[in-house]
């Protein structure tokens, strides 16, 4: 373990060096002032693994030096032990506040000093283990992020939101409807405005979570009726419900937008992520329809791409939205 001992008393420094070497700590550097200590830290190729600091020194004292060292990136978790005389006990609290881990009483008992250093050594070892685990986790997270990356146009299955299914399942559902059921069915879609911008600013997990939040907000407003929804890519959610469903009102998109605004979505770095939703006109089939049964899905997606965004609600409208939600649940 590389140790730096700092004390303005050269005799005490030498005594400490002899004691430490006697206990097997042979890699010990000495400094007789804060300036000398900082210079040695700056010039050290590999960081010190433990630092011993006298509290009372001329110029910058040990507590100020401790705070300074702690502010250095490489010394965030390095054990710092204060060497305190009996008369300095009142300073110990300040030393801990400045980032010290422990203290050794002066005149020091060699056994106490070595014991505390062993504890510090254990801290160093644990810090290394934690650092290695954090590094491994970061790598793993990056690998997962890369693996979960999807194109902005790709349909993605949103999991754990009631009523949300895979795009293929949604199409299969429509395909198996009888002629009568198909007539009773309406398809409509929601689109996240400026989805490409949000996509570009998000990590794969961030964009996935944003899509999940939006899906939840939509599902929350549709939950009183029977529906299926799929994320069909490019920020579009396509829904299937009955054409006479009570939820299909002019205000539906506003209510969902209100829920999304309430979520106060943000990116991992804390920046707000503004999600504005547009809703397309519901699409239905006439009794004498031809073409593919899945045309209503295609038409719903086409309709949302030309739809205007919702008016954001505030004041009374927001209260109404809350009331509708409360009534629906």
């Amino acid at each position: 373990m590389r140790i730096l001992a700092v004390d303005d008393d050269s005799l005490l420094l030498e005594l400490m060096e002899i004691t430490l070497q006697g206990a097997g700590y042979v890699d010990v550097d000495l400094a007789s002032s804060a300036d000398e200590a900082l210079a040695q830290i700056a010039n050290s190729v590999t960081p010190y693994e433990c630092i011993l600091l006298d509290i009372q020194m001329p110029g910058t004292d040990g507590i100020e030096l401790c705070a300074h060292i702690r502010s250095l990136h490489q010394y965030k978790t390095t054990p710092i032990l204060m060497i305190t005389a009996m008369t300095e006990r009142s300073f110990v609290e300040r030393a801990f506040a400045a980032g010290a881990n422990d203290y050794v009483s002066k005149p020091f008992d060699p056994f106490e000093l070595v014991t505390r250093l062993r504890l510090a050594g254990e801290t160093v070892r644990q810090n290394r283990v934690v650092a290695e685990k954090v590094f491994a986790l970061k790598n793993l997270r990056n690998a997962v992020e890369e693996k979960s990356r999807f194109l902005p146009t790709s349909p993605v299955l949103i999991e754990d939101v009631t009523g949300v299914v895979d795009q293929v399942v949604l199409e299969n559902y429509v395909l198996q409807l009888s002629r009568g059921e198909a007539f009773q069915t309406a398809a409509f879609a929601f689109k996240i405005r400026e989805f490409d911008t949000i996509y570009a600013q998000s990590s794969p997990s961030e964009i996935y979570l944003t899509l999940t939040d939006v899906a939840e907000a939509i599902a929350n407003q549709l939950k009183q009726t029977s529906f299926l929804m799929a994320y069909t890519g490019s920020g579009v959610f396509t829904c299937i419900t009955r054409r006479n469903a009570a939820c299909l009102t002019d205000e539906l998109c506003q209510f969902i937008q209100y829920d999304i605004d309430e979520m106060a979505l943000c990116y991992d770095d804390g920046r707000p992520c503004t999600v504005t939703l547009a809703m397309g006109e519901p699409q239905t089939k006439s009794r004498l329809f031809g073409g593919s049964p899945t045309d209503i899905i295609t038409n719903a997606i086409a309709a949302v791409n030309t739809a205007p965004g919702p008016r954001r609600m505030g004041g009374l409208a927001a209260v109404v939205a809350g009331g509708v939600q409360a009534g629906a649940s």
């Binding site: 008393d9 005490l12 009372q56 005389a85 009996m86 008369t87 002066k106 005149p107 020091f108």
Partner: peptide, 25 residues
């Protein structure tokens, strides 16, 4: 006195160190 109190005990002069610490205080 501070310097003396911090080191005397390490060389076998514990009483001298304690006395120096008391006077320092």
């Amino acid at each position: 006195l501070h310097r003396l109190s911090g080191i005397a005990g390490s060389f076998g002069y514990a009483e001298l160190g304690v006395e120096a610490a008391e006077l320092e205080m």
